[in-house]
């Protein structure tokens, strides 16, 4: 006689969830590539199907350390968490320029100029136009380097000759606050 056995999906215990949450923090903190964070499917591979519950617990743990876990939805499938990117970031802005060591000063400034121009133009600016703006401030040979580095790091992207903000700018930079402060700032202008 054939016996059918039915298994109810078992919920992980609190202890298991805590261990998985610790693992989430480790996985998100140690970058396997130049792009921060991990995709949902990668976390699923390490943690199992209930990885989203572990991320929720990890988010509480990160909160206590002045950090938060951000979700970057996939552009094609924004609802699909497996394709989303999970990133750990600070709760407070960087403020100290010395700490932004992953980019040089001219690269950070270049990014601000690009974000401003992209915002002014409604979300996309022609490559030649942004190059002209950057060349006015920086040596020409550096401009191409900066643009390609910002693309590589996920801050900007280029489609059909137009430069747009990429996921990392949207995630990391408060563009409204940035533009407001540029407009209202005084002094320390170029001496050229």
């Amino acid at each position: 006689m054939r016996v059918w056995r039915y298994h109810l999906a078992e919920q992980p215990s609190d202890e298991e969830l805590k261990l998985k949450a610790d693992k989430v923090l480790k996985l998100l903190l140690i970058e396997p590539s130049s792009i921060p964070g991990m995709k949902g499917w990668e976390l699923k591979k390490h943690l199992g199907k209930d990885y989203l519950s572990a991320i929720k617990v990890a988010a509480v743990q990160a909160e206590g350390l002045g950090m938060k876990i951000a979700v970057v939805p996939d552009e094609d499938e924004p609802e699909n968490m497996d394709r989303a990117r999970f990133v750990i970031m600070t709760k407070e802005p960087l403020s100290d320029l010395e700490l932004s060591r992953w980019m040089r000063i001219e690269e950070v400034a270049g990014l601000a100029i690009l974000i401003s121009e992209i915002t002014i133009r409604g979300g996309a600016a022609p490559v030649q136009a942004v190059e002209r703006l950057l060349i006015a401030k920086l040596p020409k040979w550096r401009v191409n380097q900066i643009i390609s580095k910002l693309k590589r790091l996920g801050y900007i992207k280029e489609e059909n000759g137009l430069i747009m903000k990429d996921w990392r700018s949207k995630l990391e930079i408060d563009d409204t606050g940035l533009i407001r402060e540029i407009i209202t700032s005084k002094g320390e202008t170029d001496k050229q």
Partner: peptide
């Protein structure tokens, strides 16, 4: 810019 940047870690 750094005043308005919340970097990923």
């Amino acid at each position: 810019t750094s005043n308005h940047t919340y970097p990923s870690i």
